[in-house]
Simulated assay, not measured.
Amino acid sequence: MKIIFRNIAAITFVLTSLFAGKAQAQQSVSDKSLLWEVSGNGLEKPSYIYGTIHMICDSDFKIMDKVKKAFGQSSQLVLEADIFNPEMGNLVKKEMMSDVPLSKKLSAADYASVDSIMQLKCGMPLKALDNFKLSMVLSLVSVKLFPCAVPQSFEAAFDKMAKEKNMHRNVLEEVVAQMEFLNKAFTDSQIISQVKSFDSAAVGTKEMVAMYKAEDINGLYKYMTKPDLMDENTMRWMLIERNNNWAEKMPAMMKKESSFFAVGAAHLPGSIGILSLLKAKGYTVKPIMK
């Protein structure tokens, strides 16, 4: 359970791809790249934005040479949240606790169904999570969408690289805030429905990994925001609110020093993406192709 608490803040990419509803309009970026340079508008040195996938199997994990080069030219690493804070486990556990036990919140039929899936996919009974919110259940199940025992993390790799380089490290939001957004984004009925749709979600995850490896952030965005996968409430709390918050914080960080931002790839494209938001503030944003 401690491992889950340390990693639960790194499931946003998976969770934002799972829900049904009406999506916002998309604004494409013309090039396929996970790495973007931000310059101009008074910046002495460029900064970089890299779109991560928060979990990926080791066989698909690779830090490209162009990413290593940009990282080496930066003096500060900025992650979404401080998920490697030693106190994160306690903070997340507190935020994920529920006032009403799942055994009382769920109908007998839903409880039995979710319990069966938990035991089959995660090897643990739902009873073990009785005092947690349903988002905790979804977090555990989401990790199992990947066909490997222990998915790799770009955030962990970058954090290790930053320590070795003695880089400054910063974050765009607090872990508690990230958990609050997560809990606001998904209703109980959505979570129950998605847990029951594990097999189809696993297929979708495989497709997203393929697009990620192709650096197709437009494809990822289209897939994740199509009408049958994401609703307006999920868009608001997982993308719109957070992207706007980040776009307000990033200029001061970039002005102070060259920064390497590592955030979920879904946050980059689209009319509400941070690339468009930074362009609107007067920055030159361009893809780094190689």
Rank of each mutant, 00 (worst) to 15 (best):
T12Y: 13
G123W: 03
R169N: 10
Y50C: 05
M235K: 06
A177V: 11
R169K: 10
C57N: 09
A252Q: 13
E44Q: 14
K281Q: 14
F13S: 15
V137W: 03
K69G: 04
A81R: 10
K66V: 13
N41G: 11
F181I: 06
L91S: 14
P287M: 01
E173L: 02
E80W: 10
N166P: 11
M97S: 14
P86F: 09
S28Y: 12
V143F: 07
L129G: 10
T205G: 02
K163N: 14
F5R: 14
N131K: 12
F84I: 13
F13R: 05
I191A: 02
F132E: 04
W36Y: 05
F181R: 11
C148M: 12
F260V: 00
K104G: 06
Y221A: 09
A247E: 07
D188M: 04
A112K: 12
L275W: 08
D199I: 01
S30G: 12
E215Q: 13
E180L: 10
I83V: 15
V143I: 13
V137I: 09
K249C: 02
Q119H: 07
D58M: 13
I274K: 10
L120Y: 11
A266Q: 08
F71K: 02
E215R: 09
T225I: 03
L145F: 04
N243Y: 03
M161T: 03
Y111R: 13
N243S: 05
I272T: 13
R236Y: 07
N7S: 14
L35W: 05
Q27Y: 10
W246M: 15
V29M: 10
D231N: 12
D130G: 00
M289P: 00
K32Q: 09
M224R: 03
V141L: 01
I117F: 06
K286C: 04
N41W: 14
A162P: 00
L18D: 07
Q190A: 10
V137T: 00
M64Q: 15
K286E: 05
N245Q: 15
K184P: 03
K196F: 06
I4H: 13
K69A: 13
G40E: 11
A210S: 06
N245M: 13
A202P: 03
I49F: 06
S197P: 03
A20L: 12
Q27H: 13
V175E: 07
I49R: 04
L18C: 11
G264L: 01
S75I: 09
L134R: 12
S47M: 07
V209Y: 09
V114E: 09
V141S: 01
A202I: 05
M208T: 00
N245D: 15
H168C: 15
V38W: 04
K160A: 15
S135D: 06
A20Y: 12
K249A: 11
E87L: 15
F13G: 08
G21S: 01
D99C: 04
N170H: 09
S74C: 08
V195R: 01
E174P: 05
